[in-house]
Nucleic acid binder design. Structure first.
Lengths: 244, 244
DNA sequence: CGTTAAGTTGAAGCGTCTCAAGATTGGTGG
DNA sequence: CCACCAATCTTGAGACGCTTCAACTTAACG
């Protein structure tokens, strides 16, 4: 994990043309609304895999929309264990804090090379004041992130490891599909076994065992940064299994 | 668990006089603001311990502020296991959904006899439109609930059972103290061993074993609806232990 | 005081963890 | 293009934490 390095991307993108806008904070509004909002953008950044975007306790002055790539958000416990809170995909909103007094409660790292759209806290506030639909949209985003966190908490707390893994992939694949990714092809998966293990609350070694099982059953194969789905239906069956 | 039964409480309370208002949604605003808001209230309800306030999938038309008593919010998995998401205390906001299209993603049950202040979704929307400070306050509440969920997820996923229990109590006691409860006295605890077990992700039997340990070490004693703290400092040490 | 619900304890089994060795993959330089 | 290296993943064996089932104890309540 290196220290945060932000570079302007080669080709800045206009919000109006942005391919993930419909999934993102700027989903509502007309084209003119959107270009007006863009004027308040603090910038677009490119970062490399492994770079830390922000860390627990930071008094970050900016909030971000992930435009390209994958981001892992996590918390580190006193004992050093890491819990992955969620995997952010293009269009996802990260780094928001309602109170700029306190530092943020979790960290975020680029899992792949990424591009971020940044807004300063003050500009974001200004935007929301002049455009209530953005405040409502923020409330919607917060709620859907909270829902995802509750779902994750429920299965991490209650389901056996194999089902947790199936649930993790089931959710991830659904979100990838939403973003137009063909699930029948091989997918670049910029998550290590350890990332996934930390997300579902098992050790990497045990993650390996259960993921071997799924591979031998021809359900899903994820290794060395690649993901190949063998039987999506069966995966969902395991995720929804009521006998576990 | 019986079906929802709501009765008007014997003595309705004005928001201005409400003892938990400073912790609640109506924290911001002048006295006149607050009585204006009260006019849009749908009602105050009393419910008994064990009654279900809402259930996963419900298209609830109201949102609530808990005025008195304790509420347990939870999710049930396909296999029938229950994960307690959080324990709501007086002043806490529950039942909110950003989209009234979909049903709610979790359930809520009264752990003790309770009193609720209710607002219809439409009145709440109207309130927020005419009073942006309420929208900002909602964003703040959502964020702090999401933060609590992330914290819970982290320790349920990563910490050993005894530390999880210490963390659960540590958090709960801090919130009770915030509400003016004297931690040196005996406290009425309307949570069963099973509620707590479902919150920290262990079986009731194992919860019993670790809670026996804490009792024998004179740290905390929680049984039969009563809670007595022996050594709060030591409890927090176990919760923050970095060797676990 | 008797009944019922709640909590405790023991013993055995299973799931997950730890430690350690070995295999596979992707990247790098010869 | 191949050989080698480092990183990632796999597998085995043993230990440990948590679960299960069942019997027992304690507290609350009428």
């Amino acid at each position: 994990m290196s220290r945060t390095i932000k570079i302007k991307p080669a080709t800045p993108v206009n919000c109006v043309d942005c391919e993930v806008r419909k999934l993102a904070w700027f989903e509502p509004g007309s084209e003119t609304d959107i270009s007006r909002r863009q004027a308040l953008r603090s910038g677009q950044y490119a970062m490399s895999a492994g770079e830390v975007i922000y860390q627990e306790g930071d008094h970050q002055r900016e909030i971000y929309t992930l435009r390209k790539g994958w981001v892992v958000r996590y918390k580190i416990l006193a004992g050093g264990q890491r819990q992955v809170l969620n995997v952010a995909l293009p269009g996802d909103f990260i780094g928001f804090r309602s109170s700029s007094q306190e530092g943020i409660d979790h960290s975020a790292v680029a899992a792949s090379d990424i591009e971020l759209c940044a807004f300063s806290q003050s500009n974001a506030q200004q935007l929301m004041q002049s455009d209530p639909s953005l405040m409502l949209r923020l409330i919607e985003i917060q709620d859907s992130q909270a829902q995802a966190c509750r779902t994750r908490l429920a299965y991490v707390g209650q389901a056996p490891a194999k089902q947790r893994l199936a649930m993790f992939f089931s959710d991830l694949l659904q979100r990838l599909e939403q973003r137009g990714i063909d699930l029948s092809e091989m997918i670049q998966l910029p998550l290590t076994r350890e990332d996934i293990a930390d997300a579902i609350g098992v050790t990497p070694v045990h993650m390996s065992r259960i993921s071997s099982e799924l591979r031998k059953e021809n359900i899903i194969d994820c290794r060395y940064g690649k993901l190949m789905i063998g039987n999506l239906e069966r995966l969902k069956e395991i995720a929804d299994d009521d006998s576990a």
